[in-house]
C-alpha cells in the first residue's frame, strides 16, 4: 500500500498546484484587464475561457504544428530530428508493405460500419417512436452495449467468434450443416477479420445512435404529420417527406461523428489477436511505428495522412449536407 501512495501523492500535489495556479491566473486576468480599463464583460469572458486557450495552445496547436514538422524528419527521440523532406510520405505510399492493407482495412471498416450502424439505429429509433410502452426500459436496454468498455467488448466478441467453441459458430451450426461447409474462422481467418469487426462494431454503435435519433424523432412536431395525412400522404411518403428531412440534422451529426470515430478505431485491435497483420487498423500501425519502433517522424507522417482523410471525408459530408440536411431556422 505504501508503494501505491508513493505513486499517487506527487501527482496529487502537482494536479492540485496546476488547478490552483489556473484559478489564480483566471482571477488575475479578470481583475487585471478590468483595471486597465477593459470592459467588464470582455474581461470576464477571457478569464472564463482561459483554461481552454491554454489547453488549445499547448495540447492542440503546438502538437499539431510540431507533428507536421516531424512528418518531414527522421526522429527516434534520442537524437534530434533530422530533416528528410518528403521521404516519409514517399516511403508510406510506395515501399511500406503494411500501409496500404492497413488503410484499406480502416476505410472499409468505416464504409460498412457507419451506414449499417445508422440504418440499424434508425430502425430501432423508429420502432421506439411508435408509442411503445415502457420506452425508458427499451431505451436503457438498447444503450447497454455502449456503456461497456471497448476492451471488454473486444474480448467478448473475440470469444464469441472463437472458431471451435464460440457462440456465433454455435448458432450458425445448422447453417454450416445445411450447406455442408467448414465453420467460419472469423478473427483467425485473414479474409473474415473485416466482417467480424463490422458485426462487432454494430453492437456498440447502434444503441448509442438509436438514443440520439429517437430524441430527434420526438422533436418533430406532430402537426407536420397531420398536415401530410390531410394531403393524402401514406406511411412511406410521410417517412420520406417529413421524417427524413426533419431528422436530417441529427442524421448528419451521427454520420460525421460516426465517420470520425470509425476511422480511429484503436482499443479493440489490441485485445483481438488476428493472424499476421490482418487486423492492423491505421491507428494501430501508427502507434506501433511511433512507440514500438521509435519512428516518430514516420508515424507523424501517417497520422497526418489520417487527418487528411478525416478532413476530406468530413468536408465532403458537410458540402453534401446542403443537398440533404434541412435546417428549420434557415427557411423560417
Amino acid at each position: 500500500m505504501e508503494a501505491a501512495i508513493q505513486s499517487y501523492w506527487p501527482t496529487l500535489v502537482r494536479w492540485s498546484l496546476v488547478g490552483g495556479a489556473l484559478g489564480a491566473m483566471m482571477y488575475l486576468l479578470n481583475t487585471g484587464l478590468q483595471r486597465i480599463g477593459v470592459k467588464r464583460d470582455i474581461a470576464r469572458g477571457y478569464a472564463f475561457v482561459l483554461p481552454w486557450i491554454f489547453g488549445f495552445l499547448i495540447f492542440s496547436l503546438y502538437p499539431f504544428v510540431y507533428s507536421f514538422y516531424l512528418s518531414f524528419t527522421e526522429y527516434n527521440i534520442f537524437q534530434p530530428p533530422r530533416w528528410i523532406g518528403l521521404d516519409n510520405y514517399v516511403r508510406m505510399f510506395t515501399s511500406d508493405r503494411n500501409f496500404w492493407p492497413s488503410l484499406r482495412l480502416t476505410m472499409l471498416y468505416a464504409f460498412f460500419n457507419v451506414p449499417l450502424g445508422m440504418i440499424g439505429a434508425l430502425g430501432v429509433a423508429l420502432l421506439l417512436n411508435r408509442n411503445v410502452r415502457a420506452i425508458g426500459f427499451w431505451r436503457t436496454l438498447y444503450y447497454l452495449p455502449a456503456v461497456l468498455p471497448a476492451a471488454a467488448v473486444a474480448l467478448l466478441w473475440r470469444w464469441m467468434f472463437s472458431p471451435s467453441s464460440g457462440l456465433i459458430n454455435f448458432f450458425l451450426q445448422p447453417f454450416y450443416a445445411l450447406f455442408n461447409m467448414q465453420p467460419l474462422a472469423w478473427f483467425t481467418d485473414p479474409n473474415l477479420v473485416l466482417p467480424a469487426y463490422v458485426i462487432m462494431g454494430m453492437w456498440g454503435v447502434f444503441g448509442a445512435n438509436a438514443v440520439i435519433l429517437l430524441a430527434g424523432l420526438k422533436n418533430i412536431p406532430r402537426a407536420l404529420y397531420e398536415a401530410a395525412q390531410i394531403d393524402g400522404a401514406g406511411t412511406w411518403a410521410q417517412f420520406r417527406f417529413v421524417t427524413i428531412p426533419m431528422l436530417s440534422p441529427t442524421l448528419f451529426y451521427t454520420l460525421v461523428t460516426g465517420i470520425i470515430g470509425a476511422l480511429q478505431i484503436f482499443t479493440q485491435a489490441f485485445f483481438i489477436t488476428t493472424p499476421q497483420r490482418a487486423g492492423q487498423f491505421l491507428n494501430v500501425l501508427i502507434y506501433q511505428e511511433a512507440f514500438a519502433f521509435r519512428h516518430m517522424g514516420y508515424a507523424s507522417a501517417m497520422a497526418w495522412f489520417l487527418l487528411a482523410v478525416i478532413l476530406a471525408l468530413t468536408l465532403l459530408v458537410i458540402r453534401s449536407s446542403a443537398l440533404w440536411v434541412y435546417y428549420e431556422s434557415e427557411k423560417g
Binding site: F64, I260, A303, L306
Partner: peptide, 11 residues
C-alpha cells in the same frame, strides 16, 4: 475533428 493520434507524439 483532429484525430488524437496526430497530437499524440508531440504531447
Amino acid at each position: 475533428m483532429l484525430p488524437g493520434i496526430v497530437t499524440l507524439i508531440p504531447t
